[in-house]
């Protein structure tokens, strides 16, 4: 059941030009940032860190873009009535759609593999670190999309869905952003700042970039997704 819904939703991206526009813009932006802002060449290091570094910020735009239609579109077109009079549970429908969006965003990330090949051609990268970077990016995408799927279920308007997703994700990015934490450090004790930072995305993504898969980070991203999807089901059943 989940599989059928997943397939329809995933292929749905490619039935319209949305998928192609999305992939091209995402790849241009992510690779462009790595080259121009991340000093990919100047760093003179065989690593993809300058690519991964910008993903938490890029996902701010691209995760809501991938997730906004999940439920808002069903509500607007009325097809939600069709979907929920088919023999599927709300949980199955939520998971099927969410996994499709996740797979799509993961595909967008993985399509940057020529970057990895370039690094491999030019130098001798730590392939383990490259791999964990990708794994981390995909887990992080899962957390973003949990939020986007939930906000999409709150409205029938995709623009509203996009804006709310963006703002909520922005909060999660800010919580863990070193600049923000630095400012916070001026008013709050260290323990409190650490706690706040731990709620944000970036501190849990950092270790992946450095080649470390810490189960706590995996659990963090999966819990953000799990909690938001649970609320998503509750919201739809209400």
């Amino acid at each position: 059941m989940i599989c059928t819904i997943f397939k329809r939703e995933f292929l749905g991206y490619f039935r319209t030009p949305v998928a192609y526009v999305f992939l091209i813009v995402f790849l241009t932006a992510s690779v462009g940032l790595a080259f121009f802002l991340g000093n990919f060449f100047k760093n003179n290091a065989a690593t993809l860190e300058s690519y991964f570094l910008f993903l938490p910020w890029l996902f701010l735009f691209f995760a809501p873009a991938a997730g906004m239609r999940l439920w808002a579109e069903e509500k607007r077109s009325g097809s939600i009535e069709l979907l929920f009079t088919l023999p599927v549970t709300t949980t199955q429908a939520v998971l099927g759609k969410y996994l499709a969006a996740w797979a799509f965003l993961a595909l967008a990330v993985v399509l940057s593999f020529p970057m990895a090949l370039t690094v491999g051609y030019l130098g001798d990268p730590d392939w383990g670190g490259v791999l964990t970077g990708y794994v981390g990016a995909i887990f992080m995408a899962g957390a973003y999309l949990g939020i986007c799927s939930l906000t999409s279920a709150l409205t029938r308007n995709q623009v509203i869905s996009f804006v709310i997703s963006f703002v909520v994700c922005l909060v999660f990015v800010f919580l863990g952003w070193s600049v923000f934490n630095g400012a916070l450090g001026a008013v709050l004790p260290v323990g409190a700042v650490d706690f706040v930072a731990n709620c944000g995305f970036i501190p849990h993504f950092d270790p992946f970039m450095k080649g470390i898969i810490d189960p706590r980070d995996v659990i963090y991203f999966l819990s953000v997704a799990g909690i938001t999807l649970f609320i998503n089901v509750v919201v739809l059943e209400r």
Binding site: T4, R15, S77, G78, E81
Partner: peptide, 23 residues
């Protein structure tokens, strides 16, 4: 349902195939 909602971007064949899959 009233006004027969469906997934507009799918073809008739794809749509019915999806329904059959979910069924």
């Amino acid at each position: 349902p009233e006004s027969a909602p469906a997934y507009g971007e799918m073809t008739v064949g794809e749509f019915l195939g999806f329904i059959a899959g979910v069924r």
